[in-house]
Amino acid sequence: MTARDPLPAFAGQIISAQGDTLIDASGRRIVDLASGGLGFGLPDIIGKVREQASVMGLSNRVMMSEPLLTLCRELAGMLPPALSNAYVCSSGDEAFEGALKLCKGLRPQLRRLAHIRGSEFGSLSYGRCLEEPEGYGQLRRFLGLETLTVERDGALPSIAELSQCYALCYSPLVRQNDGSLAALPPERLLAVAALARSAGVPLVCQASETCLGAAGTMFGHELSGVVPDILVLGGALGGGAVPIGCYFTSAERAYQVYGCSSPAKHGSTTGGNPLSCTAALAALESMIGKLAG
C-alpha cells in the first residue's frame, strides 16, 4: 500500500448518515438513538453551514464573529437569568473540562470533585474519572484528583464533607444498576442542590447528551426543575453537522475567575468558530420549530 492508496473499508466504518440512520461500509443501516431530536444531514442546517463555510469557516477564538455573538445571545435568552455568561468550546466534553477549570478557579485550594453516581461526563480525563470512580488510579494520581461519590438514593454526604469539594457534578439522566438510563427524581436533585448551596459548592450539570430534544426537553436540565450553577451543552447542539459545546454560568461567578477578559479566550484555538456557531443557530431554530409543532 502506498501513501496514495485508499484505506481499506471495514464494517464498523461509518460512511454516511441521514436523519437518525447511519450507514456502515457493509451497507448496514444503524439507527442512532443517541443523536438527539435532530439527527444528521438536515437540509436546512447543512445549507446554512455551507453558506457560512463559503464566507468564513474557522477563526481564532479571540475573534468575536457575528455567529458567535448571536449564538451567545440566543442561548442566554433561552436559559434562566442565572446562566447569562456563555463560554463556547469545540465540543461538549471540552466544555465540561472548561466548566471544571472555572470551578477550580473559584476554589483553587481544593482538589476533590463530587459527582452523582451513574452520571455521564464524556470521554476526556476528568469525565472518565468521574464516570468510573473506582478506576483510572494512575490518571487520578497524575491529575491530583480526589472524588466524592454521591449515590442516586440513600444518605447524602454531610455539609462538611461536601465543602471540601470544588464542584458537584451530575447529568440529567443517570445510569441505573441494570444499565438503563433514567432521570434523577426531582426531589432527590432538589435535596442535592440544597446541600451543595449550603456547602457553597457549585452545582454543575453536564447536559451534552440530553440537549435539543434527546430527553424530551430543550436543554435537559429542565427535567428536574433545578437550575444548576453551571450548565454544559454539546452533542446535538451542533445539529449533527459541526461539533460545538459551551458552558454557562452567572456573570458574578465568571467575573471572580476571569474578570473582564473576553469569554472567547477560554477554550481551544478555534472554539466558537463561525461554522460551528452557524450550525448551532440552525439547530436551535429547527428544534424550536419541532417543539412548537
Rank of each mutant, 00 (worst) to 15 (best):
A3K: 15
A3G: 12
D5M: 14
A9I: 07
G12W: 07
Q18N: 12
I23S: 04
D24T: 02
I30V: 12
I30N: 10
I30A: 08
V31L: 10
V31N: 05
V31Y: 05
A34E: 06
S35R: 15
G37Q: 03
L38E: 05
L38N: 04
F40P: 05
D44I: 13
I45K: 02
I46C: 14
K48G: 06
R50T: 09
A53H: 07
S54T: 14
V55A: 12
L58E: 15
S59R: 15
N60I: 10
R61F: 14
M63L: 14
M64S: 15
S65Q: 08
L68W: 15
L71R: 07
R73N: 11
R73D: 14
L75T: 03
A76K: 12
G77N: 13
L79K: 05
P81G: 08
A82G: 15
N85M: 08
S90I: 08
G92L: 01
E94F: 04
E97S: 09
K101R: 10
C103A: 14
R107P: 04
P108V: 01
L110S: 09
A114L: 00
I116M: 07
I116D: 09
I116S: 08
R117V: 03
R117W: 04
G118M: 05
E120P: 01
Y126F: 12
Y126E: 02
C129P: 03
L130Q: 11
P133R: 02
G135N: 07
Y136E: 05
R140A: 04
R141M: 04
L143V: 04
L143D: 01
T147I: 08
T147A: 01
L148G: 00
I159F: 03
E161K: 05
L162D: 02
Q164F: 02
Y166F: 15
Y166S: 05
Y170C: 00
V174W: 05
R175I: 11
Q176D: 05
Q176G: 00
G179C: 01
S180A: 08
A182H: 12
R188Q: 09
A191Y: 07
V192F: 06
R197C: 06
G200T: 12
C205D: 02
T210V: 10
C211L: 05
A214T: 03
A215D: 14
M218P: 00
M218W: 02
F219A: 07
H221E: 10
E222T: 01
L223R: 02
S224V: 02
P228N: 03
P228R: 02
P228M: 00
D229P: 09
D229Q: 09
I230M: 06
V232N: 07
L233V: 11
L233M: 10
L233P: 07
A236S: 14
L237C: 10
G238T: 06
G239R: 03
I244E: 00
I244P: 00
G245W: 12
F248M: 14
F248K: 13
T249I: 10
E252Q: 15
A254S: 15
Y255H: 15
Y255V: 07
Y258K: 12
G259Y: 08
G259E: 04
S261L: 14
S268H: 12
T270G: 11
T270V: 13
G272R: 09
L275H: 12
S276Y: 09
C277K: 03
T278C: 06
A282S: 11
L284Y: 09
S286T: 13
I288R: 14
I288H: 13
G289V: 02
G289R: 07
L291H: 02
A292V: 06
A292H: 09
